[in-house]
Design a protein around this nucleic acid. Structure first.
Lengths: 330, 330
DNA sequence: TCTCGATTTGACAACGTTGTCACCGCCTCT
DNA sequence: AGAGGCGGTGACAACGTTGTCAAATCGAGA
């Protein structure tokens, strides 16, 4: 900017004014400055600007894994809202690792992002309290934070969705419904388990732990679970799978030649690409909406909206495609 | 940092030394400084640090759409490499819109990212030349840049992959093979078309424009294309689909009740989630590897590696799953 | 002609760091 | 005792902006 000023024969401040479209600059002078900018290929240094002004016009987004379609949908929505607000996004994947999450968040804070959107991985978010006190806005998405700060949170109606999904299977006559989901340490998994149990209870059915399997999704694990379930004295006739990855892993296991189980009905939590072609009935949530709502909430906070932390719950939607309507064999 | 210095009763510079683990600070003093840092909840301002030192330890990544699994896989790989290098990533989706790409790139440049990884959307990248001259390293991924700078580029063997896929269908007896892909304005689409034509030529078959359809993927478009193809006097007995989204849209259209075409063999370019369950034969590329290689190349440049721009081509792999092995009905 | 207000411009400090250099003790070696 | 080296510390400028305030210029009205 100094060079530009020298080249245009004006003071630094005048260049600054021109660059920022501030009023009160003579048109002729502005023209001369523009020419100099063009000639020198000058581009304003937003880092320095940020330092002076206090706002960085950037936010940090920490999710579990960008490569997971659920989070990448959320990610895209956050990005779009941010761009509308003239804001850039730092993205980081925690990989469900609390310490990596912490590392990312603190790195974002050191960069003085204006706000954070976090899909929390750990159970302890005390480390965020000083940052929030220091004025960094934070919104939690998909799951509430663990111990620590009381901040805005946007989740979906996990228990309600799981209840509806389970009730759907019950309505088709099933009485032995297995529940397969991620580790109980993950908020959404336990919430969905709760919905499943509520549905059973409402139908006057007992909760049978033998029918429940909760662990990180994976091919081997899905196979093992199914083999165990099908060997039970009173095996399940339907499966409720508690998230997208578990659903996919389960479908693969069901298709494997080893799993010589009887046909079972399947309802999954989370919609996924090609579920329509495979005819899989799901309880769908809308990751893009989750991201959008979280980002909008964040920007309202950044715009100065005060008030107590909000907790928003987004609805789910049952999408009937066939796999959940398989009747009980009589 | 000033406050910390005052609280610890030392000079600014000493705090700086402690914060950066620089040698030459008395253990007792360091202890006192650490205590003050803890007490005040101080966190270094990386923006100011960056301004002073010149390197921002951040890179910009511009892709077409994070929500597309291909790009989100690439994205995750870039992120992982960057994290290893102690670097944060700004991510932006261009949505195949050249002006949005430009806007994002220039915003990243204004933030003085150290480097850029770009999946180019437009055909004119002259706007990047001054930035590259200004010292920002750039690597193009998935597609080469249009007119403008001559920079490092990592692509996959598009033509080779399409040739192998087409040859696979030819080997199963097909002579009328349709080619469905994205707009010819997209580099990968035309390269794959080239591979398709090479395979036909090698087999001594004519290139029939009636069998080729190139446009942005979508449900309606896939249906229209298939209906047209199946109404031809000499309809195709096999389809080669030129990218993941086209493959999926085509499969949906094939499954639609309206499309009452005969069974056709299908080979798609790009692997996708659940292709295994659906039994779709594909020519797979590895988006994570693409991202990793591009990021590694970028960081080598940032580390000072000189030499002429490189152009890397990654191999593809034919994954046989059934849909491409449907024999010609005799 | 002088004063006043508006317009245009510029000097300077500040944002929070780090690099450079100089300083102060203290110990060791002559 | 004096010179020299070394570990520890601090003063100060600089990075590239922008906010504050003052100065210069000009035309208009008294």
């Amino acid at each position: 900017m100094n060079d530009v000023a020298a080249a245009a024969g004006v003071a630094l401040k005048t260049v600054s004014r021109v660059v920022n479209n501030e009023p009160g600059v003579n048109a002729t002078t502005a023209e001369r400055v523009h020419a100099a900018i063009e000639r020198l290929g000058y581009r304003r240094n937003d880092g320095a600007r940020t330092l002076r002004r206090g706002r960085t016009a950037s936010i940090g987004l920490v999710i579990e894994d960008v490569a997971d379609p659920f989070y990448s949908g959320l990610s895209r929505a956050v990005e779009d809202v941010a761009l509308d607000e003239g804001c850039l996004v730092f993205t980081g994947s925690s990989g469900e690792d609390a310490s990596r999450e912490r590392e990312l968040v603190l790195a974002f804070c050191a960069r003085r992002v204006d706000g954070l959107i976090i899909v929390p991985a750990g159970t302890d978010h005390d480390y965020l309290t000083p940052e929030i006190d220091a004025g960094i806005a934070a919104v939690f998405a998909d799951r509430p934070p663990g111990a620590g700060p009381d901040a805005d949170t946007v989740v979906c109606d996990n228990a309600g969705g799981a209840r509806v999904g389970t009730e759907h299977l019950l309505a088709h006559g099933h009485r032995r419904i297995a529940f397969l989901a991620d580790s109980p340490s993950i908020f959404t998994a336990t919430e969905r388990l709760r919905g499943y149990r509520e549905a059973l209870a409402s139908a006057g059915l007992p909760y049978d732990e033998e029918l429940v399997a909760m662990a990180p999704p994976g091919r081997a694990r899905a196979l093992a679970d199914l083999e165990r379930l099908f060997r039970l004295a009173d095996p399940p006739t339907a499966l409720f799978t508690g998230n997208g990855r578990t659903t996919v892993a389960t479908l693969r296991a069901l298709a494997a030649p080893i799993t010589h189980g009887p046909p079972v009905a399947v309802v999954g939590f989370d919609d996924f690409e090609l579920a329509d072609l495979l005819g899989i009935t799901v309880v769908a949530q809308d990751p893009a909406r989750l991201g959008r709502v979280a980002a909008e909430l964040l920007f309202r906070r950044l715009a100065g909206e005060s008030g107590p932390p909000q907790r928003l719950e987004l609805p789910t939607r049952l999408v009937v495609r066939g796999s959940g309507e398989l009747p009980l064999r009589g």
